[in-house]
């Protein structure tokens, strides 16, 4: 007994197709509102880590060695930022503070997301040295990438 090579190949091929369709289903079929919520959560996560680092940078706590971890967390999250902005989550399609300009100026938006990756990576590097003034300076640069993108691509919140 046994299945012929053709059948086996067919099954394998079929499994791959199913897997592909299944994962495409996970993305394309997502409720845009849920993606927007997810986006908020991830962004808040980045903000939380910045806030933790600020506590160290301001000298309120002395865990200078922790900066490396929080910076790494931000650098990790920065890798997924662009995924958070599929076209179906644009304003007009769903309620969001993201501006339509994101999708009109995708290259510039992408560059700003890259800036977060780059500067947070530098912060990881700088934080290895444990020099608080250098850390503070690079921390400020990361903060600038936050504001630099939000200024253009997010609705004012106040």
């Amino acid at each position: 007994m046994g299945f012929g090579i053709r059948v086996k190949r067919g099954v394998v091929f079929g499994l791959f197709c199913a897997a592909g369709l299944f994962s495409a289903q996970a993305m394309a079929g997502d409720n845009p509102k849920e993606i927007v919520r997810y986006r908020h959560t991830v962004m808040s996560g980045i903000g939380r880590n910045m806030k933790a680092m600020a506590t160290i940078v301001k000298g309120k706590v002395s865990f200078v060695g922790h900066v490396r971890h929080e910076a790494a967390a931000i650098n990790e999250l920065s890798q997924i930022v662009l995924d958070l902005f599929p076209p179906e989550t644009a304003p007009g399609k769903v309620e969001t503070d993201a501006k339509a300009e994101i999708w009109k100026n995708w290259d510039d938006f992408k560059a700003k997301a890259e800036a977060l990756k780059t500067e947070s990576a530098k912060l990881v590097e700088v934080s290895q040295k444990g020099d608080l003034s250098l850390i503070k300076a690079q921390f400020g640069k990361v903060g600038k990438t936050c504001g630099g993108c939000h200024e253009r691509y997010r609705e004012e919140e106040d």
Partner: peptide, 13 residues
Amino acid sequence: TLGMKPDGDFVSG
């Protein structure tokens, strides 16, 4: 002093 808001976001412009 840092330009950071309570939620960890930063001022811009």
